[in-house]
């Protein structure tokens, strides 16, 4: 019954209506899981004017792409998007539903899981097949990243939200899949109404920056973040923070790196005056290289860092920034 064992990827689109990098990674991961599950890979994209995204999905391994294209789906609405998924699941059986651990899926998937009575594992950092039991295991950090739990899901479809950089983008396929436009009924009355959106601008998106420079409680106030901005500028990076500076209002809360803020994995993460609370570590520990600057030699952050400097950031940072600036300029 190959037909009945499809893996469904819940795709998301960027503001320019392409599929997101995270979605591409899910297509790669989904292809692997579908293969182990002897099933097919399919995708669902919801939005307004998402034909181009559907084509991309069809060219990246989806045997079928379901498209829900309607002006009311332009931006995420819990009730409307839930209804599309509910209707699709009522028509087509799936064995796995894969979504990114994104703003949308963190809201949508719990609703769907409870609607359908299905088990859901959120914030997955890995998926693999347990050979002895033939079960798929979903790994996720619990207790703020102090333990990694592996779950099997007893209901179908198995629902999961996966962190960025867990899957690898697939090679484009030679024969594109079929694109199926879902029938959109008449617009419905929703109980909840979204009456406004307020954007808080930032220059480089934290999740995409190659370098992230973050400050912690030890920065002592908003002024110190000026030095971090200068360093980030020299390195073409973005500035983040652990939770205390955000709670204290020194920096916008959108700067928070951690299990409840942004999860980042840049080439270089520079942690300044951050002690290394678990909830922060969970948001940056996958970074390729980690530099820690802290005046407390016992700070836990040094245990997860590749390079460390024990000392006062107020003395170290200006020299560090100007030396890097000088050398990078010389290199051109």
């Amino acid at each position: 019954m190959g037909e009945e064992r499809a893996t469904l990827v819940l795709a998301e689109v960027t503001s320019s209506k392409n599929i997101t990098g995270h979605t591409l990674e899910l297509m790669g991961l989904g292809a692997k899981l579908a293969e182990q599950d002897q099933g097919r890979l399919r995708a669902l994209v919801m939005g307004s004017g998402v034909g181009m995204a559907a084509d991309e999905l069809a060219r990246h391994g989806a045997e079928k792409v379901y498209v829900a294209d309607h002006p009311s789906l332009q931006s995420y609405h819990p009730e409307l998007h839930l209804m599309v998924l509910k209707n699709l699941l009522a028509k087509e059986p799936f064995s796995i539903l894969l979504a990114g651990h994104t703003s949308m899926a963190q809201d949508l998937l719990p609703r769907l899981a409870f609607q359908e009575g299905c088990g859901l594992v959120t914030d997955c950092v890995g998926v693999d097949m347990d050979v002895s039991s033939g079960q798929l295991l979903f790994h996720k950090p619990i207790f703020g990243g102090n333990a990694i739990a592996s779950f099997a899901i007893k209901s179908l479809p198995r629902m999961v939200t996966v962190r960025a950089r867990v899957g690898e983008p697939p090679e484009p396929s030679l024969s594109p899949g079929e694109i199926i436009y879902l029938e959109m009924g008449d617009p419905v009355e929703t109980k909840m109404r979204i009456t406004g959106r307020v954007a808080e601008e930032r220059q480089v998106r934290l999740e995409e920056a190659p370098v992230v420079v973050s400050g912690g409680r030890g920065m002592g106030g908003p002024e110190g973040f000026q030095l971090l901005n200068q360093l980030a500028e020299v390195l073409g990076g973005a500035v983040g923070a652990s939770r205390p500076p955000c709670d204290a209002g020194w920096v916008p809360s959108t700067s928070q790196v951690g299990i409840t803020g942004k999860v980042v994995a840049p080439n270089l993460y520079i942690a300044v005056a951050i002690s290394g609370a678990s909830q922060h570590l969970s948001g940056m520990v996958e970074s390729k290289k980690i530099v820690a600057i802290n005046k407390d030699p016992e700070a836990y952050i040094f245990k997860v860092a590749d390079y460390g400097l024990v000392g006062d950031w107020q003395e170290a940072l200006p020299v560090f920034t100007s030396k890097l600036k000088e050398c990078l300029q010389e290199r051109g």
Binding site: C118, S150, V285, K303, A305, D306
Partner: peptide
């Protein structure tokens, strides 16, 4: 009525060797 089954629990592997300047 649990829908999830915890099959394994492990400590995280996040420690690295830090070169101190």
């Amino acid at each position: 009525g649990n829908l999830l089954q915890l099959t394994r629990l492990a400590p995280p592997s996040r420690e690295r060797t830090c070169v101190l300047m």
